[in-house]
Design a protein around this nucleic acid. Sequence first.
DNA 1: TATATTTGCGTATTCCATACACATTCTATT
DNA 2: AATAGAATGTGTATGGAATACGCAAATATA
Lengths: 226, 226
Amino acid sequence: MDISNPLYRNQGIHVVCALFTVKDGEVKILLAKRSNNPYPDKWMLPSGAVYNNEDCETAMKREMLEKTGITNFYVEQFHVFSNPNRSPVMRMLAVGYIGIINSENLKIKKKTEKTQDVEWFKLSEVPEDLAYDHHEIFLYALKTLKVKIIRTNIVKALLPKYFTLPELQKVYEVILNKKFDRRNFRKKFLQLGLIENTGMKESNKGHKPANLYKFIQSKDYDVDIF
Amino acid sequence: MDISNPLYRNQGIHVVCALFTVKDGEVKILLAKRSNNPYPDKWMLPSGAVYNNEDCETAMKREMLEKTGITNFYVEQFHVFSNPNRSPVMRMLAVGYIGIINSENLKIKKKTEKTQDVEWFKLSEVPEDLAYDHHEIFLYALKTLKVKIIRTNIVKALLPKYFTLPELQKVYEVILNKKFDRRNFRKKFLQLGLIENTGMKESNKGHKPANLYKFIQSKDYDVDIF
DNA sequence: TATATTTGCGTATTCCATACACATTCTATT
DNA sequence: AATAGAATGTGTATGGAATACGCAAATATA
């Protein structure tokens, strides 16, 4: 690469993260509200520039920590967005990540130097005028999440340590926007051998309590299951 | 992004393509032999730097045309390689693409300014000392190809216009390195409704001629089939 | 104690994956 | 011309998974 060629100048590398969780029986995504130019006061996916001494995943986790205070979440690269005009400032490539975390005991930092707020949004309430091309990135991430939750075991990253089968089913239903038969869902998931009954039960539900299950430790995320 | 921050300096964006084909009943991948530093005389995946006025896919197709003369192939992004030390020259991110083409009537350019040769390699004969981290990229691309050929319809891009069911089966067998039962493979693939019998037959094979099939035009690539 | 609600378990049926037998159609050989 | 060799195309039997749906059990609340 001839570094003196002006065609190679001013290229920036960004990382951007679509972090999903399940909260109050709904799938939600984390957005941050910008303070500065460009797109002041617009919501965006947490994102930032990559330093030249770190790889993209490291940069993304650093940005997430700096901008939202969130750490220790499951993450997977899903697509690169490289339209040369995607940023009005300069040519800025974005490496997109899907993040997944369970919302139990999760605190987020609300305000930083560059952001004035950080919030979980229902998927149906994500603003269409996100900064940059982030709405397009959000849609692509959601599409990828749908495939992943069918084909792999990432649902493990969405759930708390103990959960009931109806709760597990609800996660599938809200992400895929589709109903399943209770009895068949149970049969199918149990025979996968990914979860085990803890013997404990939920309580105070006003009906027959469901058993609490947990994922079997040894089984990894991102294992093909369907 | 504060462009004066030295942490953001000297970042290059590369694209790299693992182009697969089926030739002589074998899966092959296209490699180019380098002329210049770094890695003189080493084989590499076709790759090159992205101009700041084009997106990555455009850059990749331009590089493929310049370095190999190949155009009009199916392509899909699969992973970004961002280890800061992956190039000895400077920090250079690589956006990886899988390319797929059928080798019928395919000519390749053998020599360019930067490459002294371009060749199809059997997967078992790809040198382990490819330039940069290209061997790692090759392995990742192959793994992705295996998933894609099971889950989607990309096999369409590997085959010529007319093909027999045994030929189709052979493609699956060489890519997945696994044998299938003729009769069950036929039954399964036909019921997918992706291909149709042309009524024509192959000839001069020394045995009962197989019917020639073609893909139904309207069905796209990258459709989930299994 | 009765009721509403939801969980957990069971069964019947249909569809798909797999295993394997046999007939067909071509080329090559004698 | 007859036959052998080789691979294709068709069919069938079986086991397991997906789907549809009936019913009993357990809890909070009235």
